[in-house]
Amino acid sequence: MTLRLPEDIDARAKVLAEREHRSLHSLVVNAVDEYIRRHGDDVIVEQLGRNIVRRYSETLDRLGKS
């Protein structure tokens, strides 16, 4: 995979990686991992919500009319 960062982000990332005595690759891998950990559950919750709506659509319609 080739990753092309905008110049400003690339420059800041290189400074941070150097300050932390890490490679730019390591910094990017950790950033992606953190993003997935923060937002990965959103996908699961969204899928569960769709399943609930599909499974209980009649009940939800009746509740909406009450």
Rank of each mutant, 00 (worst) to 15 (best):
D42H: 12
A11F: 07
H25V: 06
I44L: 10
H39N: 13
E7K: 06
V53C: 03
D33Y: 11
R50M: 07
D10G: 06
D41T: 11
E20L: 15
V28D: 00
Q47F: 08
R19P: 01
E34W: 01
A17R: 02
R19A: 15
I9W: 07
I52T: 10
E20F: 06
V29D: 02
D10T: 00
D33M: 04
A13V: 10
V45H: 02
E34Q: 15
H25W: 05
L24G: 02
L24Q: 02
V53Y: 02
V28F: 03
V32T: 09
S26T: 11
G49F: 03
K14E: 13
D10M: 07
L16Y: 05
I9E: 12
D10K: 12
I9P: 00
R12K: 15
R22A: 11
H21M: 08
I52F: 14
V53L: 08
A11K: 09
V28R: 01
L27G: 03
Y35D: 04
R12D: 14
A31S: 13
V32D: 03
D41S: 14
N30Y: 07
R50W: 05
R50G: 08
E46Y: 08
E7V: 15
I36S: 04
E34G: 00
I52Y: 15
R54H: 14
A31D: 03
V29L: 04
S26K: 06
D10L: 14
I9L: 14
D33N: 09
G40R: 01
R54E: 10
V32M: 04
H21D: 11
V53H: 04
A13M: 11
R50V: 02
V28I: 15
K14R: 15
I44V: 15
I36W: 06
L16F: 07
R12A: 15
I44A: 11
G49K: 08
R12F: 03
L27C: 01
R19W: 07
A13S: 13
E18I: 00
E34V: 13
E18S: 14
A13P: 01
R19G: 07
D33V: 12
D33C: 09
G49I: 04
K14S: 11
D8G: 11
V32H: 04
N51W: 08
A31L: 12
A31Y: 06
E46N: 06
V53M: 07
D33S: 12
E7W: 03
G49R: 12
V15M: 09
L16V: 10
E7Q: 08
E18L: 05
L27D: 00
R38S: 13
H39M: 04
V15K: 14
N51V: 04
R38A: 10
A17V: 02
D42Y: 08
L24H: 03
D41M: 06
E7R: 11
V43G: 00
R22W: 04
L48R: 12
V28G: 02
R38D: 06
E46V: 02
V43W: 07
R54N: 10
H25E: 09
D8Y: 01
E7P: 15
K14H: 09
Y35K: 04
D33T: 12
E20N: 07
V32I: 14
H25G: 08
